[in-house]
Nucleic acid binder design. Sequence first.
DNA 1: TTTTGGCACTCAATGATTGACAGTGCTAAT
DNA 2: ATTAGCACTGTCAATCATTGAGTGCCAAAA
Lengths: 349, 349
Amino acid sequence: MSQPRRAEILRAIVEDYVHSREPVGSKALVERHQLGVSSATVRNDMAALEEDGLIVAPHTSSGRIPTDKGYRTFVDQIASVRPLSSPQKRAIQSFLDGADDLDDAMERTVRLLAQLTHQVAVIQYPAASGTTLRHVELVDVGGTSLLVVFIPTSGRVLQRIVEVSRALPEHELMELRARVLASVVGRPLQDVPAATANLVQQLPAELAEAGTVVAEALATLAASSEDHRLVMAGTANLARFSGDFALSISPVLEALEEQVVMLRLLSEMQQDARGVAVRIGSDSTDDPLAETSVVATGYGPESVSKLGVVGPTRMDYPSTMAAVRAWRAICPTRWGSSGARRGTVPHPR
Amino acid sequence: MSQPRRAEILRAIVEDYVHSREPVGSKALVERHQLGVSSATVRNDMAALEEDGLIVAPHTSSGRIPTDKGYRTFVDQIASVRPLSSPQKRAIQSFLDGADDLDDAMERTVRLLAQLTHQVAVIQYPAASGTTLRHVELVDVGGTSLLVVFIPTSGRVLQRIVEVSRALPEHELMELRARVLASVVGRPLQDVPAATANLVQQLPAELAEAGTVVAEALATLAASSEDHRLVMAGTANLARFSGDFALSISPVLEALEEQVVMLRLLSEMQQDARGVAVRIGSDSTDDPLAETSVVATGYGPESVSKLGVVGPTRMDYPSTMAAVRAWRAICPTRWGSSGARRGTVPHPR
DNA sequence: TTTTGGCACTCAATGATTGACAGTGCTAAT
DNA sequence: ATTAGCACTGTCAATCATTGAGTGCCAAAA
């Protein structure tokens, strides 16, 4: 019983099942693919594959469907991921070029990926790791309120209003601003709390209180800019599947909205040599994503930020992987940590 | 044939149908409600209600279900909306107090509303109308790139990177900043383009180019801060309904993601004396939201910003309306145009 | 004029029965 | 190791009778 043929049969089963959504039997298999053997031989091999836990028969006398383990080995078999065609790439690029801020770019990315894969697409905001603080602005917004604007290189501007007990005159505010700028600008985000704590030590008495409040705000902002958020699109695509298969979409939608679950899952995924990570189903039955697969990849510096698609375990892995993989190159370099570089490529409009 | 009794019967039919999800017959009605008449009388009245187009029978011999028009008159009959209990209100308030920026507040609001109504909740970012420009900041981010930070009173900070042909020395940048601030701060957003255009006229030669670019950016930002975006939550609740009724959730999800559709719909809804607007179904069959109802209300200054819930036409209108209505009072006053007011209520932590 | 009881009728839902069919496992022959 | 053949098994769709909730209508009662 030759091993290569078994692999070939597994491949054929997965492909047919993904396409037809119906259990595939030995006869149909030999008709649709030119394996040079008879259906009886295929049956023997199928029995062996079932023995190995790669496929199962829903009931005694019906075709087989792949198990999660079956999909897994199928995916691992795929040697090379066929890249997207280059007109396709160009179309994507030009659509993405239309974006005019980070939010917009994220939105467009995720929508396009969803449309391309006919699946739910998710993308994480560019990670803060490796990000530095580009600028801080203190703005008097009347009375004893100060607006602290926090501008990291990642492009995700945050702001927060704080209260001081005494209104600061203009020159004191400028003084505080200058000192804050000097001590934190250019620092990696994780150093911000330490730097501001240090700053507070050296402040003159009249700035002490305001400085403390501002330092506190900056520390909080630095922490909260680390909390990566998800943007998603294409949830409607989930509904398209729920009809024929028993993929109950409600828990999936909940998990997606919850974000925390997805974020942890994305961060745990290890991408392989082909540049994509694939998670197929789940062993635990109570997992809301038990019947789904996730195809993801990293982007940005060190590939720490993630993007990917979520779909039923029965999905078209090769094309989904190709689509996701294509994004590694074209993704948000422009709005990420290299936002300032934008001018290096003159951009006529 | 008394009119009040007919109304009573319609009410009973709607309530039972919403509760049981099954067509309701004359016999069941007289059993569950104490209308002082026999089932035969109820049958006569039902025939009349059907004549008026308020209810229909799915097939010849089965109970009746309300039509959109039926729901409409049912909703119009509800005189007073029972307010939420005050512990409930307090719980909401305290949960919302935990938010620490506008995004977070929106997120929490919409999640809570979704949970409360068991429906999809949507909320629009505070509208810009009536909003003024609180501050503008110009930041040199290296080379010929300038970061323009745009801070309206609505709390939704925007930023954008622009290119100038020549790097500006520090003092020129400060000069430009001062001039920009003087000419636009405190202006209503819609005046910003005019104000900046005016400013550009009066700039000295060395600031002319940078000034033009910045003015352009400010105009764009002012425009894009008008584009209200939607936040939503509870999409999983949609799936709960799709099972029993033929509400295909896919087009609904699409419409929700599209945002544009929802935004127009929300802005067109007119709220009545009770403070809520209710849209029930739709006449056109190709409308993706044909089988859904929207209960919405305005919040913020002049109630121009909207929030609401989307659900199947067969929903529990009284309680949904109560929940939505409750939000008028407790909604984002804190992060909206009155963000600066935060300190007026001391806020120990 | 309105309400009620009664009766015939309708139609969806249920369940049992049946035949066709697609597919398997096994065995014996190649 | 492969193949042909055959008995066996469970699903699916169609058919049919039965049930029961519900209606419409009519004539009698209030």
